[in-house]
Design a protein around this nucleic acid. Sequence first.
DNA 1: TCCCGCCGTGGGAGCGCTCCCGGCGAGCCT
DNA 2: AGGCTCGCCGGGAGCGCTCCCACGGCGGGA
Lengths: 324, 324
Amino acid sequence: MTPRPTLEQVAAHAGVGRGTVSRVVNGSPQVSEQTRRAVEAAIAELGYVPNLAARALVTRRTGTVALVVAEGEERLFEEPFFARAVRGISSAVQASGRQLVLALSEGRPLERYLTPQHVDGVLLLSVRADDPLPRQLQGTGLPVVLGGRPDGVDVPHVDVDNAGGARAAVAHLLATGRRRIATVTGPPDMGAGRDRLAGYRDALAGAEALEVTGDFTEGSGYRGVRELLDRRPDLDAVFAAGDSMAVGALRALREAGRSVPGDVAVVGFDDSPLAAVTDPPLTTVRQPVEELGRAMAELLAALLAGEEPASRVLPTELVVRASS
Amino acid sequence: MTPRPTLEQVAAHAGVGRGTVSRVVNGSPQVSEQTRRAVEAAIAELGYVPNLAARALVTRRTGTVALVVAEGEERLFEEPFFARAVRGISSAVQASGRQLVLALSEGRPLERYLTPQHVDGVLLLSVRADDPLPRQLQGTGLPVVLGGRPDGVDVPHVDVDNAGGARAAVAHLLATGRRRIATVTGPPDMGAGRDRLAGYRDALAGAEALEVTGDFTEGSGYRGVRELLDRRPDLDAVFAAGDSMAVGALRALREAGRSVPGDVAVVGFDDSPLAAVTDPPLTTVRQPVEELGRAMAELLAALLAGEEPASRVLPTELVVRASS
DNA sequence: TCCCGCCGTGGGAGCGCTCCCGGCGAGCCT
DNA sequence: AGGCTCGCCGGGAGCGCTCCCACGGCGGGA
């Protein structure tokens, strides 16, 4: 509650000048060992903490990065994805000595706030491929790192290997003797949806493709599989591009009297907590979400340090359970 | 990319003094209508945005509030709880014109940062009743609002009606003819765990209590029900204080050859996404998580406005599905 | 008519910091 | 011995804003 000491007071207490204390605080080598110790003692004794506002005012850097979640990402709030990503991001951002400010753009005008005057950089979580935000932000000159895959624009980004995960899932189905493998895809306007579909087609290697479009919801998985069963009653595997859709798929198969994995194998994607409790437990593709967050923050830190870091694609991993 | 205009430049452009522009920006009534319009035009034309750092430096208020998630709250990251709470918080914080900074304390020293110099107030998400953080923060003189229930200390807080939800769950079981109703509790050092247990005991109204302690994990639900079945093979209902534990309970009952809801009814708590996909779908208690977040932020805003708002307890709601 | 008060306004001071320039010794070269 | 360099240090200036004091002009009361 007592007023925080200022640089000036620390300087007086240590018997040095303001500049010297500033140098010590900022780790400049231009200070003799002896002086440094005296200053550090004064800092400790007075409990000095730098005033960030004053520093930001003169350096023109705020020491904060914004995490922006694009509008319409409801999906992020229904699964642990967001929490896990935030966890990874937070840990890496704090490690870089910066603070994280959260901006969920729910129809609010972010442009006013997202300027070099307020934040040093932006982390953008957006799976929608046609999102205009990445491009907009790039226009402000603010360093941006995208979580997901940019569409067209060349934005530094971190993505997970959606295509590779889908390939692994389908390869696994083929290896276990399945031959009529259908898929319920994600929405075509999401990078994740498109890439998983691409992986599916790729792994099929000439075998017959059997596709129906979903939107990552349980209902779309259910309807998708019903349609698939109409079109091809003898299908023996379903690759659902998301776990919720896989849950819907299981429901549709059960209703249709198909046993899983006896008649039909099912593989999901995400390894959400759902996957472990379905009946039977779901084979699925796990993505390293916390690692994604951490990598995003690290990429941004590199950008802020003036480097030109490469975008990254993180590996996914097939988790085999009883449904396949 | 062009340097942002300053107050000074807006003033020159509008042909007025610096002070007048400041008054307009801050909505002071001490400005004539005509002058105000001229200044507003200049602001719009130049695209002026106030420099928050400069303002913070002189007002000694930062316009930011911190969301602190106490250490060891892994549970928050496995369920949509965190994401939903953040959503409510973010929306209300932005509505109050402030920004939200996120501080997940993973063993880092927060004290240095959590000072009136850096943030105006703190929102604390912590279900651990013995958490020392609320008390610590109160010592700094920083306004604090707790999400959950404080233990001993008198901290403004917002909680959900855990006891009421548990009472409703048990009342429902009694109303459907169940008589030997067991419970798997949450950990006794969490407010939610204790309150749900209290609600259970309360609703039992003299009927025989049958309790085993869990820790909100699926495994503890499974082990708890096995022990319960040993002690009382004829139990006909289980109230699990969390959905994950309820999932474990279902597994244990299935293994023991009990049908749900035929032999034993099961009720969970939380209404997590899991609840809708179990077999059978889970009757559970829904809590208004986004509303919790919003209420926390509103309480803090009131505190910052110098009011003395009352803590709140938000109602919970029983969602009846097939498991009971 | 004169004075007082009040509204609207301009601008000085100063928030706490970093940047940078200039100065002061001590050592080294010539 | 004189001059130069170089390491280390002090402190002025100024970042963009709010606060507040002082000032000019106008209306109303005496």
